[in-house]
Amino acid sequence: MPTFSPPRRAVAGLAAAVLLLASCASDDNGDDEVDVTDGDAAFVVDDAWARSTPAGRGAVYFQITSSDDDAIVGASVDSSIAAVVELHETVAADDGDVDPSMDGDMDGDMDGDTNGDTNGDMASGDDEGHGGGMMEMREVASIPLPAGETVVLEPGGLHVMLLDMPEMLEIGSVFDLTLELETAEPLTITVSVRDA
């Protein structure tokens, strides 16, 4: 939209600044990844990691900031890592708004607002576990990426779930994860396997 060009550029500038900051911070662990797609939208992806877990299932976490409104609508990895990749969220099971219809609803047109509440939960940080409170995972159709907002995928919250992993994820290894986005071109990020 032409009328939005100047602010968009400003946001892109801001994202670039964040990008610079992130690259400074990356000295700590060296596994930060920054990627910029076509001139239109810029993404900053920080601290992409997966926990070393036995074969079977695993989870990938990272922080992502998009210069434009967008959403992660899917993800994929090489089949040597996992046969199936899904977007998941761990929630307190008793918060009541589990929507089974969301499962498998990955095709068709994606409404960025579908998971608006998801985003709210996430921004407020971790759900503190309550004694005896049930936690469950549910698949989410998309992870909204509001322009300029850093969306955090972390243990106990949003994560990219790896299913049918033929091998254990070895500490120190890396693999590529491709994120499908609602608007921008697919984004490939490098995930480091950690023992953390």
């Binding site: 099971a93 499962d103 005896g132």
Partner: peptide, 21 residues
């Protein structure tokens, strides 16, 4: 006072909810 529940969703996927204490 722990709890767990195993369900199979519409797509035939086994889902487990559990207390994580």
């Amino acid at each position: 006072t722990a709890s767990s529940e195993i369900t199979v969703n519409g797509a035939g996927v086994v889902e487990v909810a559990h207390s994580a204490t």
